[in-house]
């Protein structure tokens, strides 16, 4: 499921639940690129249909959704005429698509600001938080996964695997609360509130405040990716080329670091793209918990006050960001693999 934090596929059937791998081996990189981009565009199109459908599912229709619950029938009628809501659905969809493409996502009546401006202000901060969590998580998960694979079926491996499941099973907000209780309330090491401010620079100026949010966001990613990394490394350790490398007198340590690491990372890179929606979902919770002024918090406050233009604008932007992110991860994976990169020449 694309669920918020839980990424089932994740801890478990990593490979099988991953997006259908677009094998580029024979087609060459150019063909692969074109196919994959077209696929992403198709997905974005379906996303836009879903968002459009949600707009029409709003109580009282899109007009009430946009104008708010206090709007009078006259206002609604005027709005519908002005926005072509009396036209056939297909035309309405096309104009919605057109407006979205030009960046016009409507007006937030809560913030009294255009939705795209509100998002543009906060998206970078969410990307910063997610990015930092991701970097921290990868720095822990990759070595942990490799270590477990090398020590497979020993006590260390067993305990780390169990720990990963426990971490995976702990809701982000509960983990956040525990961290606040322990590290902020009791130990007083870090502030429990995230840095405030409009720009990224202001956020970065208070690094201590970032520690708990980044940590909270990183734990579930570590739980999931250490398992991916472990199973990917295990697969590769069983490959014939490992035996060849050992047979020519390469030390085991070097076999792991020089041969296995790179081959094991490639599929994990693709999983990163797949994991993006989960990370954004996690960001929402973390931002809400620590009052971090990013897009998740914006979205949450919009949900509290039924600010539909804001809500749907956020959904559209975050979904497109996800699709683009997955696309980039797939392309990166293809570039890391000489079998697909070959066609580039």
């Amino acid at each position: 499921m694309t669920t918020a934090i839980p990424a089932r596929s994740g801890a478990v059937e990593a490979g099988a639940a991953a997006p259908a791998p677009v094998r580029a081996a024979r087609g060459g990189f150019g063909r692969f690129l074109i196919r994959r981009v077209l696929q992403a565009l198709a997905v974005i199109l379906v996303v836009s249909v879903i968002v459009f459908a949600l707009l029409h599912a709003l109580p009282g229709g899109p007009a009430r959704g946009v104008l708010g619950q206090q709007a009078t029938p006259e206002q609604i009628a005027a709005f519908e005429a002005a926005n072509g809501l009396d036209q056939p659905v297909v035309l309405q969809y096309l104009s919605f698509l057109g407006r979205s493409l030009t960046g016009d996502l409507g007006e937030s009546y809560l913030l009294n600001q255009s939705v795209s401006d509100a998002i543009a202000l906060r998206l970078p901060k969410t990307l910063l938080l997610t990015g930092l969590s991701l970097v921290v998580a990868v720095l822990v998960a990759v070595p942990a996964g490799i270590y477990q694979a090398v020590r497979r079926n020993r006590a260390v491996d067993y305990w780390l695997s169990t720990l990963a499941i426990v971490a995976y099973s702990t809701p982000t907000f509960f983990l956040g609360m525990l961290l606040i209780l322990l590290l902020s309330q009791n130990a007083g090491l870090f502030p429990a509130a995230a840095p405030q401010g409009t720009g990224i620079a202001e956020v970065l100026a208070q690094p201590a405040g970032l520690v708990l949010p980044v940590l909270t966001g990183a734990v579930p990613i570590v739980a999931t990716f250490s398992r991916y990394m472990r199973s990917s490394t295990l697969d590769n350790l069983g490959e014939d080329y490992v035996r060849t490398a050992r047979a020519k007198g390469t030390a085991y340590r070097r076999v792991v670091l020089r041969h296995v690491l790179r081959n094991s990372l490639t599929p994990v890179v693709a999983m990163l793209g797949y994991y993006l929606p989960v990370m954004f979902g996690g960001a929402l919770v973390v931002e809400q918990l620590f009052n971090y002024p990013g897009m998740g918090l914006l979205f949450w406050s919009a949900a509290q006050s039924s600010d539909f233009p804001e809500l749907l604008g956020c959904v559209l932007v975050i979904s497109v960001a996800t699709v683009v992110g997955s696309l980039l991860a797939d392309l990166l994976q293809a570039l890391l693999d000489p079998r697909t990169r070959g066609g580039l020449r």
């Binding site: 490959e239 014939d240 080329y241 035996r243 060849t244 490398a245 050992r246 047979a247 020519k248 007198g249 390469t250 030390a251 085991y252 041969h259 790179r262 081959n263 490639t266 890391l336 693999d337 000489p338 079998r339």
Partner: peptide, 28 residues
């Protein structure tokens, strides 16, 4: 012990395997 075998492998004796399609590292 394994640490000293590393010195023997490839220098004193080496090996050729069955499956050429998988015996080489695909990314090197």
């Amino acid at each position: 012990p394994e640490e000293q075998l590393v010195d023997l492998r490839g220098r004193v004796a080496s090996m050729v395997f069955q499956e050429p399609m998988t015996a080489l590292n695909p990314t090197m």
